[in-house]
Amino acid sequence: MASSGKDRRIDYIEFNVSDIARARQFYGEAFGWTFTDYGPSYCEFSDGGLKGGFTTEGKVGSGGPLIILFADDLADTLRQVEKAGGQIVKPVFTFPGGRRFHFADPDGYELAVWSDK
């Protein structure tokens, strides 16, 4: 069987959210994601490389795996996250290979953004 090129890669992520419009606004403003609506309780998002969805069908909560996004300009991305309503929960810090910060989205999910610069 031929490999699809996606074997063992993250293919899709779903967030349980309390308000799809708010999630769309936040991720659209902060990261420029695009969206496709599939009814009142589901919206698919695309970051240009990965797709996922927002749903109101499950329990909203934090925890689980940490999703880390990449940024060419970490400072600009941090400003965009704050402007869109995200809360910085770990300010920018260095680690071997780069720098990153953590933020909470409007539903309390913690994500991180890193840069190699």
Rank of each mutant, 00 (worst) to 15 (best):
G63V: 11
G63I: 11
G63W: 12
G63A: 10
G64R: 14
G64Y: 11
G64K: 13
G64I: 13
G64H: 13
P65I: 15
P65M: 15
P65G: 15
L66G: 06
L66Y: 06
L66T: 10
L66E: 12
I67D: 10
I67N: 13
I67E: 10
I68E: 13
I68T: 14
I68N: 12
I68K: 11
I68A: 11
L69P: 05
L69Q: 13
F70T: 13
F70C: 10
A71P: 01
A71I: 08
A71S: 13
D72S: 09
D72C: 03
D72L: 11
D73M: 08
D73A: 08
D73W: 06
L74R: 00
L74F: 03
L74N: 00
A75P: 00
A75I: 03
A75Y: 01
A75H: 02
D76H: 05
D76A: 13
T77Q: 13
T77E: 11
L78C: 04
L78N: 00
R79M: 03
R79I: 00
Q80C: 09
Q80F: 04
Q80E: 07
V81H: 02
V81P: 05
V81Q: 01
V81Y: 06
V81N: 00
V81D: 01
E82F: 02
E82R: 14
E82K: 14
E82H: 02
E82C: 06
E82I: 14
K83R: 08
K83T: 04
K83S: 07
K83E: 04
G85D: 09
G85Y: 05
G86M: 04
G86A: 03
Q87F: 07
Q87D: 06
Q87P: 00
I88C: 01
I88H: 02
I88V: 14
I88G: 01
V89W: 10
V89D: 02
V89Q: 03
K90E: 11
K90A: 06
K90Q: 13
P91D: 15
P91N: 14
V92S: 03
V92I: 15
V92G: 00
V92R: 01
V92H: 01
V92F: 08
V92L: 08
V92N: 00
V92K: 02
